[in-house]
Amino acid sequence: MSLSAYLILSAVLFLFGAFGMMERRNMVGLLISIELMLNAASINFMAFNHFLYPGTVTGQIMTLFVIGLAAAEATLFLAIVFAVYRHYRSINVERVDHLRG
């Protein structure tokens, strides 16, 4: 398999994620789209590491950081969603529309 096969796959996943970011209005849907985009980025890191710099580990370590960041981000998002839900009784982002606490 060539490098462009991996890159096309990752671009398609990224575009799915971008579409979901624009179309969804539910906070969980937005989080799922963000995870798709992060996943596409980590495919890119792995593919470039394997094809252009074989034998090195920089891209793999970057992917490890992406995975860790996604886990941290999901828990943080969980906390934010809970706070928003307690206040607004909804997790639709269009209803969360005033800055007053």
Partner: peptide
């Protein structure tokens, strides 16, 4: 990385997203 992806991403992140679904 494949093993870490399964363990951390699938085992922790995806499961916590399913947990948030209670609020939808």
């Amino acid at each position: 990385i494949a093993v870490v992806q399964i363990l951390v991403y699938l085992g922790a992140t995806a499961i916590s997203i399913i947990f948030i679904l209670m609020l939808s």
